[in-house]
Amino acid sequence: MDWGFITVTLLDGVARGLYFFLVSAGLTLIFSMMGVLNFAHASFFMLGGYFAYIIAQEWGLSFWVALPVVPLVIGAIGMVVERFGLRQVHKFGHVAELIFTFGLAFLVQEFVKLVFGNDTKPYAVPELLKGPLFTIGDQTFGSFRAFMIVVSISIFIGLYLLLTRTRVGMIIQAALTHPNTVSNLGHNVPLIFMAVFGVGTALAALAGVIALPTDALQPGAAARLGPIIFVIIVVGGLGSLSGALFASLIIGVLTTMFDASQLSVISIMEAVANLLGIEWSLLERPTYELRRLMVGDLIMMSTKQVGALFPYLLMVLILIFRPQGLLGKRES
């Protein structure tokens, strides 16, 4: 494996982790503020992709129109959902809220199927950002992925400044842990909730706009991302933006590395055997014969398969050893 390969794979992982962050940022703020795990959060990500595809490709406007418009539109939809959905359901308790968001996720998925169909839409990278930005060795790194990185980092910095440098940001931070007390001080917490919900959904939509050209735009997109962002907010610590960023990057980079790795039990056995100078007849056989062996599944097991489990494993470990998450503040 050469350095070019490692560098670009790392960058791929960063790009992936950063778009995970865009989605999980809203989820973690909403969760810790309202105490509701919003199952529909990833649905806004998916809607972002579809709306952008419609605007950029079906209507023939450009990706650059979709980029600002889609988050605004979906952010507004998010606020309506909070104001007229979640807030009404709130009186009936958390279970009702969970069921509501669950139903909403389902509804969005069926809506998407009905309106856009089940097929994978040919949502593509905009013309301007097609092609490689640079080449290391024989590996290229696409301009679009670099663009994803730049957009996500700008959003993180913007959010960070908003939360730590502005009065609204402080109110939000305070409301993350003590919404009632903030209300009692005369701040309109329901309005803040609605705004945060709106911004959170807008960010998820933005992630959909910039990530789905490299992924598959289809009605299953939300269901595939949902579990990952849930893992991220738990690992990062509920309500912690930096935690979400940190966990997103860890999971983005490591899952990409796992995907790129080609180690398997048999390849490790081979390396060890070579090292010891042992000639081993098993290794001469074609892989399909190896697979048929009694222990075939075991010796063919690869880091890829382990990699798919990795985020969940990490979550379980965190829940056991650091339940408040890597950068979480409160134990809950």
Partner: peptide, 17 residues
């Protein structure tokens, strides 16, 4: 794994490499 890979870029990179 079937239906579970989010992004095949690492695979494409391996092919290239």
């Amino acid at each position: 794994p079937i239906g579970q890979v989010q992004d095949f870029t690492p695979y494409a990179r391996n092919v290239k490499a």
